[in-house]
Computed example of a mutant assay.
Amino acid sequence: AGGAAALRWAAMPEATLRSYLSFHGQPVPDGATHAALVEQVTAHFSDWMVKEDDVVDLYTRGSRALTVDDTASNASRKRRRTNALSDVPAKRGEQVAAKITVDGDAAWILAGVISYNLKTKVYEVKDEDDESIVELPHKDVIRLDDEIAGLQQGDRVLAVFPDTTSFYKAIISKDPVKTNAERSPPFEVWVKFEDDEDESGKTPHRRILAMHIVYEPNKEIEELARR
């Protein structure tokens, strides 16, 4: 990575570079020099497979620059699990939830990102099951979150059914709690899937990876309002 975009990052003050890295969840070393921060920011965008000039333009044209104080304030607020990660384009190779059409019906599946076009906001993704490649608009792709913060018992979600690569409607059946053995990802969450009754008519609790749970688009606002 480099060129004109790198030069434009180099023109930004150190505080802006640090805030930008924090906003995108990148580690920000305390003793990093301005040159090192420029290199880190430039390298971060090289993984997106988008034009760096476009990204710089989008950031610098924002209504206001994100400051260090903003980042600290946001981090101090109680986090609620949403699909907000999807506002930032997924990287090449990242696993995501993708909405496709199967026999005329919409379905959510696990897929791997091949590329993202920043101008058209279109992803190229590969189905994790049959490895078919499809193009999807930004709104039909959800980035996955491996944290459990914000998930609550009773939340209605989409979750990957065990031994499949497909998402199905489910409800979180127990409040997620980190155990002593689960201090870092991957975390697991107990859910009950719709139409998953056993022979006795009972719906079993199933343990699902937290990163394989998302809110159905347009439903997450309802979930937050319901609390």
Rank of each mutant, 00 (worst) to 15 (best):
N218K: 10
A90F: 05
I109Q: 02
A1V: 06
T165W: 01
G93S: 13
D127V: 00
R61F: 04
A90P: 04
D69S: 14
R18G: 03
V102R: 13
I208H: 06
M49W: 06
M12G: 00
Q152C: 13
R79I: 13
H138I: 12
E39Q: 14
K139F: 07
L17G: 05
L37C: 05
R183V: 01
T67L: 03
A43L: 11
F193Y: 11
V68A: 12
T60D: 00
R79A: 14
N74F: 15
A84F: 07
A90K: 05
I142H: 03
R81W: 13
T71H: 11
L110I: 00
F187P: 01
V55D: 01
P186V: 10
V88F: 10
E194H: 09
N83M: 03
R81S: 12
A36H: 12
I142K: 06
E39M: 08
I148T: 14
A32Q: 07
I142G: 00
A149I: 11
R156N: 13
Q95V: 08
A4V: 05
N83F: 01
Y20E: 09
L58H: 12
D54K: 08
E124W: 05
I172V: 15
L136G: 12
L158W: 01
R81C: 12
G3Y: 02
R18C: 02
R156G: 05
A6G: 07
G154L: 10
A106K: 14
R18Q: 06
A65Y: 03
I213M: 03
V56A: 07
V96W: 04
G25T: 02
D30A: 15
P162A: 12
V38A: 04
E14K: 15
P89C: 08
T33W: 10
Y215K: 01
F23Q: 08
S200M: 09
L58N: 14
V157P: 07
D146F: 08
S46V: 04
A72D: 14
G31P: 09
H205Y: 14
D105S: 15
D129N: 01
W108H: 00
Q40S: 15
T67K: 02
P29S: 09
T60P: 00
S166N: 03
E188V: 13
R206M: 13
A36L: 12
Y215M: 02
D57V: 04
R183M: 01
A170M: 08
A5S: 10
R64T: 04
D103I: 05
I148S: 07
T33K: 13
E223D: 10
H44T: 11
R81F: 15
I133W: 05
S76L: 08
L144E: 04
K121T: 14
G2D: 05
